[in-house]
Amino acid sequence: MTAGTAFDIIVIGAGIAGASVAAELSPEAKVLLLEMESQPGYHTTGRSAAVYTPIYGPQPIRALTRASRAFFFDPPDGFADHPLLSKRGGMFVANADQMAALEAAYAEMGAEGELEWLDPAGVRSHQPLLREDYVAGGFLDPGCFDIDVHALHQGYLSRFKAAGGRIATRAEVTAMTRDNDIWRITSVEGVFEAPIIVNAAGAWADHIGRLAGAEEIGLIPKRRTALIVDAPEGLALDDCPLVVGIEEDFYLKPDAGRLLLSPANEDPEVPCDVQPDEMDIAICIDRIEKAFDLQIRRIENRWAGLRSFVADKCPVAGYSEQTEGFYWLAGQGGYGIQSAPALSRFAASQIVGSDIPQDVLTEGLDPATLAPGRLKGIT
Rank of each mutant, 00 (worst) to 15 (best):
G4V: 04
T5M: 04
D8G: 05
I10L: 08
V11G: 00
A17P: 05
A17W: 00
A22L: 06
A23C: 11
E28Q: 09
V31G: 06
P40V: 07
H43F: 06
T44Y: 08
S48M: 14
Y52H: 12
P54T: 12
Y56F: 15
A63D: 14
L64Y: 12
D74L: 13
F79E: 07
F79S: 04
D81Q: 10
P83F: 09
K87Q: 15
M91I: 07
V93W: 02
A94G: 13
D97H: 13
A100D: 15
A104H: 11
A104G: 06
A107R: 14
G113H: 05
G122Q: 12
G122W: 08
V123M: 00
S125F: 06
H126F: 15
P142S: 12
G143N: 15
A151K: 07
Y156E: 10
R159T: 06
K161E: 15
G164Y: 10
M176K: 08
R178S: 02
N180R: 14
R184F: 00
I185G: 03
S187C: 13
V188A: 15
E189I: 00
A201E: 08
A203M: 05
A205Y: 04
D206A: 11
I217K: 02
I217H: 06
A231L: 04
A231C: 03
G234N: 09
L237N: 07
C240A: 11
V243G: 07
V244C: 03
G257Y: 02
G257M: 05
L260C: 14
P263D: 06
P268E: 12
E269Y: 04
P276I: 04
A282Q: 08
I285N: 09
D286Q: 15
R287T: 01
F292H: 02
Q295V: 13
R297V: 07
R297Y: 02
R298Y: 04
N301W: 13
N301M: 12
G305R: 01
V310K: 00
D312Q: 05
E321P: 14
G325T: 09
F326V: 06
G333R: 11
S339C: 11
S339F: 07
S349C: 10
G353R: 09
S354K: 14
D359Q: 10
E363A: 12
E363H: 12
G364E: 01
P367K: 02
P367E: 03
L370M: 11
G373D: 03
